[in-house]
Amino acid sequence: MRQYLLKSLLQIIPVLFLISIIVFVLVYCTGDPVSLMLSDTATDEDRRILIAALGLDQPLYIQYFTFIGHLFQGDFGNSFRYDMPALPIVMERLPATFELAIAAMLVATVISVPLGILSATKRNSFLDVLFSGSSVLGKAMPHFWLGIMLILLFAVELKALPVSGRGTLAHLILPAFTLGTGIAAEMTRLIRSSMLEILNQDYIRTARSKGLLESIVVYKHALRNSMIPVVTIMALQTSTLIGGTLITETIFSWPGMGQLIIQAVNTRDMAIVQAAVFVVAILVIFSNLLADILYRVLDPRIKYN
């Protein structure tokens, strides 16, 4: 176990190194921050002065090595836009994003577990078709559309919930539903198929033949085992969740990391983009690792190699 963990942790280093190159090159390719920083009426001289002051006149590889050098000290450089170290700005947004992500996961679980079980036990019934259909719809609805529709319905028409911002529990509901629906849809389908597979296993037949109540068969014998792939898939949803926060946070002006990334990309705020992508990468890597470990813990049949 320890050896396995150590190996997994060591594998993170080349991944991060690759990410650093990709991030650096991508940001460099998408345009020059100076043009966006200066006003349209700035002269060429103003540009030259600022480019030199920011060190952007250096050759690309020098800029990259400077970047990597600082990275080892945990320094992503200063955000052009805020003129502050980038990493603390990103870290300060994490709680809001976590709050939204956890709420969305809760919404997804609360919706998907009962629906998935029901679809599987009532296979090919009207409800099954309805839920499967809805989950396709839920997966297909883009976040920005769903978010705006929810705002129009629950905030503007019914005046039941606040439109945007972060603060109270009420502020969390619409964004959490927006972000959670897509994941709920995916999880419903997953739980359904996982349940179906388990329900056809021999030990379920054995349980039934012992004369156990169907509810005990379903909840005690089938559900537990069908949850193994579900739990790991949930942990693997981290990247989907974070991807979803980009749009959801922007729509609901939720002050989290997603909104920060969108704005940083729009303003070519390289330091923020780099810091944020790194933080996201580390989050995803660790949640994948966690999924791996969870899988092994839940299913002792799987061996470490």
């Binding site: 705006i148 705002i151 911002g165 002006s253």
Partner: peptide, 18 residues
């Protein structure tokens, strides 16, 4: 002073008195 990047959300906030 609130920052609401999405136009539709900003308009909705205004219309609901936010």
């Amino acid at each position: 002073f609130r920052a609401i990047p999405e136009d539709a959300t900003r308009v909705a906030e205004l219309m609901t008195g936010g």
